[in-house]
Design a protein around this nucleic acid. Sequence first.
RNA 1: GCCUGGAUAGUUUAGUGGCAAAACAAACCCUUGGUAAGGGUUAGAGCGCGGGUUCGAUUCCCGCUCCAGGCUCCA
Length: 606
Amino acid sequence: MDKATVFGTVDGGSNPSKGTSMARMTYLEKLRHTAAHLLAAAVLKLYPQAKIAIGPPIENGFYYDIDFGETKISEADLQKLEVEMRKIILSWKKIEGKKVSEKEARTLFADNPYKLELIDEIVHRKEKITVYQSGDFIDLCRGGHVDQPCKEVKHFKLLKIAGAYWRGDKNNKMLTRIYGTAFASKKELEHYLWQIEEAKKRDHRKLGKDLGLFLIPEEIGTGLIIWTPKGATIRRIIEDFILKEQTKRGYLHAYTPHLGKKSLWQISGHWDLYREKMYSPMKIDDEEYLIKPMSCPMHMMIYRSKPRSYRDLPLRIAETATVYRYEQTGELTGILRVRHITQDDAHIFCREDQVVEEFLSVFNYLKYLLKIFKIDDYYSRLGLRSKHEKYLGSDDLWKKAEFEIVKALKKENVPYITSEGDAAFYGPKLDVIIKDSLGRKWQAGTIQIDFMLPERFNLEYIDRDNKKKRPVVIHRAPLGSLERFIGLLIEHYAGAFPVWLSPVQIAILPISERFTSLARATNAYLVSKKIRSVVIDDGGTLQKKIRQATLQKIPYMIIIGAKEAETIKNEVPEIISLRTREGKDFGQVKFYEFVDRLISQIESFL
RNA sequence: GCCUGGAUAGUUUAGUGGCAAAACAAACCCUUGGUAAGGGUUAGAGCGCGGGUUCGAUUCCCGCUCCAGGCUCCA
């Protein structure tokens, strides 16, 4: 989740540097902010011992984080809270803010350690302390509310309960977060709830099962997936496609092992900085080996295998490689977050003067890919260092890398947001963020500039002046990982893949068993043309076969019966009946013309 | 890993402290059909795993595994 854009809105006074200012808050945000106060008021009424922490509006609603002490809250309690909220709101004619002194504030919230901590910070930042009151509920708050709560806060609903660490830090106490949403009208609220239900229908996990694309068998292990034949087909098409596109762009392809000596990752720095993501070493012939969490060191070996000249650069080494990372059980999600990740990886070794150009060409390639897959709802995030975490390399190198990326982005006028703390440990990076059906944001493509690994692996090239110089490495995976990307594609297309990606492109439906052999001959012809076609021949009615093919989201159905059989020539009908999964009936069409059209459709990625 | 829920035929779901139910899918039979489910018959789970309470547990309790939504983290 992206810290800077999603939850960084107004949050009861805690984090104004990232927050939306009061003046910039939209009406909906104000409404939801007031609803969050209302929720807190209801909580305190029903659970007087509870300590309320923070309650901001968010993208689709609001939440409030609450410390309930020993009391356990479950979703069954939401109903009661909602009833209480509706009771309380009647008395909230207005919501009034006022400035208070530090001392007053500390007295007001004397029994609430969370508010006291917030007050400490406000005081530390030398800002004014404000509180907002409506009815007998008063909260530490920077403001941003509707004018007449009792009239305006009507259409709300509490949605779910979750745990959330205080201040987002896992070393802190876990609070209970209650999520809700609020809208200005009943209609909008209902529409939103309906949308959530609709979104569940395009959930890649449901579609993956219904369409037979992949399995996540408990027997194999959590986070480990199997691509079943249909899903494997989609993956293979994408792999073939990117292989071709990369070749066009001057990439060379390699294969590297899934294991390597531990010392390799000690050199790269992963062992020091990335260890908690790596699986425990295994002993082979008295030597410790690791399963690779990334392929970079392997590709460094390729670069280092012989002396390089400035004329050799840029050297672009690509590999669609599966890497293995330890992800916490709680964060695994379908195929969007797994423990083996197949990256459309490559490392570009270039001279410093080539970095900007290479970066831009990777970024353009990335944009081209997203266009081919018809993904337009995405944004870019520039990940920079935060002050707190561990990083390799000197300040100078970092500044230089950041400077180069920003320069490249500015040159292309690329829209992006900046996010501190989202850098790789060896350099700044640009990520592409795509939303899933539920609006959750996922990092897909990534381009990372790296001044560190060339240093650690002592990579060199001989420059024009016959002096040894250090190349720069650009790590890039424009799709991110095939697992995540295909998961997102499943949701993006709601399982109805465009023809070029459909695991099955055509279903041939014989009207009765008498036409089975003709259907098979037609199928054989299509298969010979490299079209993925199947015969549905289970003895049912035509209607049933159409239903089956439609539910499997097969783009085209060819219907073959007596009328078509009359047009047989060279064992194949010259006229077929054609319909689509959307229900469009083309009636009778010329078979060979259809095949030609289909092939050109596939070639145009449609 | 943490918080809150959940786990019943291949799938979707019902249900109960006393022999576990249905639909779809499957197999077989009848039907041989023209644009989203023709009809019938049969088989299929002992209720995620392990303990406990009980005369008796799928149902109640405890632990574990896995799943979902969040948090943290990330491609």
